[in-house]
């Protein structure tokens, strides 16, 4: 991994966490745990991997992204704002009347959001449709899919997995945010997922298991996936729910939380310190 690129992505990931925590601070509550666990992967994708044009968000030749765990919208919103899809001050409007930034991703509300999500499981099929559509229309681009580990409970995930595997959709790169928790508690206690990679492999997918809060590992896994033709890709991200904000990481129930000013201020102080160090 090129050290310069590595530094650049990690710095961006911290900036994304800062803006995301600011969104939650303004609103005072939200799906913080699952927004933070996926921050590194989304930062890698938008900083170093995906092709897109913020001035033309609907450009047909862009890579597409479906955040099927739609409640991680706030992380995506900070990235899209930082990349110039819309003004930074929209980030103060999360969930308020008339906002363009609702709690769950909405294609018709937010420039740069490629698919509406929020009903878990549905993004798997819609991402397959997007990817297949690009193939049918001869466009050379990738579709990226983010699913939660709890989301894997949905049968629809596996319906899609069968199709993508059967059709060898190698331009579909999926990530499972394996943060070990869902809404009511630990995924292993509710419905043990066992070996997620092995399950997708059984459906004909190419799979990898990585540290999903390590931006270098995420970047390298994507490069590796692209070099493996003939199969859709599942990158299992070993993550921590709440990653990057100590107080949230340490909460036992951190799916949807109240974000006090103290919590947010402490998180922002820590993140800004880290950001200054990273920028060097």
């Amino acid at each position: 991994m090129d050290p310069k690129l590595s530094k650049q992505i990690k710095t961006f990931a911290t900036q994304v966490r800062i803006e995301t925590m600011k969104e939650f601070k303004v609103r005072g509550f939200g799906h913080v745990g699952g927004a933070l666990s996926i921050a590194d992967t989304l930062a890698v994708l938008y900083e170093a991997v995906m092709k897109y044009d913020p001035k033309n968000p609907n450009w047909e030749g862009r890579d597409k992204l479906v955040c099927s765990k739609g409640h991680a919208g706030p992380t995506l919103y900070s990235i899209l704002a930082l990349k110039g899809f819309f003004p930074m001050d929209w980030l103060n409007t999360l969930n308020i009347p008339g906002t363009h930034l609702p709690s769950h991703c909405d294609k018709n509300q937010t420039p740069g959001i490629d698919m509406t999500t929020g009903s878990l499981g549905q993004g798997v099929s819609t991402s397959i449709g997007l990817c297949l559509g690009d193939t049918i229309q001869g466009r050379d681009c990738y579709t990226y899919l983010i699913v939660g580990d709890g989301e894997l409970n949905e049968g629809q995930v596996w319906e899609g997995a069968q199709f993508a595997g059967h059709h060898k959709m190698d331009h579909l790169i999926a990530f499972c945010d394996y943060n070990k928790k869902q809404l009511d508690g630990y995924t292993a206690d509710i419905l043990d997922q066992r070996d997620i990679g092995a399950k997708f492999a059984a459906f004909g997918w190419d799979t990898q298991d990585i540290n999903g809060n390590d931006a270098d590992a995420v970047y390298e896994a994507i490069i590796k996936a692209k070099a493996t033709p003939g199969k859709p890709h599942m990158i299992v991200l070993n993550t921590i729910k709440g990653a990057g904000v100590k107080a949230v990481e340490e909460m036992s129930a951190n799916h949807h939380i109240v974000v006090s000013a103290e919590l947010a201020d402490q998180a922002l102080a820590d993140l800004e310190k880290l950001w200054a160090e990273q920028k060097g």
Binding site: L120, G121, N153, L183, D184, G185, I190, L191
Partner: peptide, 28 residues
Amino acid sequence: DLMSSIGTKKWADAHPTQAYNVGVSEAN
């Protein structure tokens, strides 16, 4: 996967043969 949202988690945890969390799988 919405016991904690509807106030049943405590009772459910104490009654494992009467309460089941099927996970995020509504058709099931």
